[in-house]
Amino acid sequence: MPESSLPGGFVNAVVRVGDTVRRPVSARTKFVGDLLRLFEAGGWSGAPRYLGVDEKGREVLSYLDGHVAWEPRQPAAVSSDESLVAVARLVREFHDLTAGTPLAGDHDVVRHNDLSPKNTVYRLVSGSLRPAAFIDWDLAAPGARIHDIAHVCWQYLGLGPAVADVGDAARRMRLIADSYALSDRQRLVSTVLWWQDRCRRGIETGADAGDVAMVRLRDVGAAREVQRAYQWVSDHRRALERALH
C-alpha cells in the first residue's frame, strides 16, 4: 500500500499506510507495546493500538483519525477551558489504568512524558474540537503523576513570555489540577521548572554529543526558547503558586 508522511514529526520519520502508522523501532518499543496492550485490555480508547512489527522492521500502530494540533495557529477550541478539563481527565484515566501494574513497578503510574497539543488527537464533540487521544508514547516510563500534569500545564498553556495574562494562566493551571484531582499541587510549579530545565539541558547535551535530532532542535532555537520559558515561570512563580492553594 502507498505510504504518506505524517506532519509534525521532528525527531522520527513517521508514515501512514492505510489505517496504520509505521515508525522506527527503538529500545522503548517493547515497553510501549506492552503499555498500549494494557490500554486495549482496559478498553481505553485514548491511545493507538499496538499491531506488531512490519516486514521493514517498523512498529505498526493503529491510525487515530482526528485533528492533531501540531501547527502554531490552532482553532480556539483546542485551548479552551473545556479542552483543558478533558485533557486532565484523559491523563487521569490512563494514570489510573497503570497504577499498581508491573509496568509502573515501584512508581505511582506510567507517565507519558511528552504530553502536548502536538501529541493530542482532537475530535468534534457537539460541534467543538475536544481532546480524544494521545499519540507518541515513545518516552512513556514509570514515574509520578505530577510530572505529566506539570508537562500539561507547561505545554497546553504555553507557559512562557507569550502568555499575555499571568492571572488567567494561573487560573487555568488551577483548572487542570482540579480536573485531574491532583493532591500534591504545591509542587506543581517547581515541577514545571524541573521539566523546562531538564528539556533545555537534554537538547544541549544531546547536541554537544552529536545527536542529529538534538542538533536540529538547538539550531532552530529550541533550547533558547525553553530557557526563556523557564525564566518566565521563575519570574511569575509566586502568582502561579498562589492560585493553586
Rank of each mutant, 00 (worst) to 15 (best):
T205W: 08
D211H: 10
R145Y: 06
R218T: 05
R185S: 03
H245C: 11
G52M: 04
G46W: 04
G33N: 05
L61K: 12
D81E: 02
K56L: 12
A209V: 01
A229C: 13
L90N: 02
L84K: 11
A177F: 09
H245L: 15
G210N: 01
S183V: 00
V125T: 09
R22Q: 15
V189P: 11
D108L: 09
V192R: 11
V110G: 08
F94H: 04
L61V: 09
V15P: 14
G9L: 02
W70Y: 14
R224E: 14
V215R: 15
L240C: 07
G8K: 07
A41G: 08
G221A: 04
M173T: 00
E241A: 10
L182H: 04
V14R: 14
N12W: 09
R89N: 09
V192D: 07
R200H: 08
L129E: 00
W154T: 01
G57T: 04
V125S: 12
D34I: 10
R49I: 02
A150R: 07
R238Q: 10
D148Y: 04
Y122S: 14
H67G: 08
V121F: 08
L157Y: 02
A177R: 12
R224C: 03
N113M: 15
I149L: 15
L182S: 00
A213F: 02
V25W: 07
R172D: 04
D96V: 02
H95F: 11
I176R: 06
A132P: 09
W44R: 05
K118C: 09
A243C: 01
V220K: 10
A69E: 11
A170W: 03
G43Q: 10
P72D: 04
Q196R: 03
T20F: 04
V220L: 09
D197N: 13
L6H: 07
D81A: 02
T20R: 15
S80E: 07
L90T: 02
G206K: 05
T98G: 13
D165Q: 12
K118Y: 00
A209H: 10
Y156C: 06
H151S: 15
E40G: 00
A86M: 12
E3V: 08
V11I: 07
R73G: 11
L115K: 04
V220Q: 05
G167Y: 11
G105P: 13
D197Q: 14
R22K: 14
S45V: 13
A86S: 12
D54M: 05
G33T: 06
D114T: 08
V11C: 11
D235L: 15
K56Y: 11
Q231I: 01
V60T: 11
W137C: 03
L6P: 13
D34S: 15
L90D: 01
E82S: 14
H151K: 15
R123Q: 01
A41L: 10
V78P: 12
A209D: 13
G100W: 01
R198W: 04
H107M: 04
D65A: 15
S128E: 15
P75R: 12
Y50K: 13
I176E: 03
G9C: 00
R23Y: 05
S80T: 03
R216M: 05
W70T: 13
D178C: 07
V14I: 13
A77S: 15
F94A: 00
A41H: 05
D235H: 06
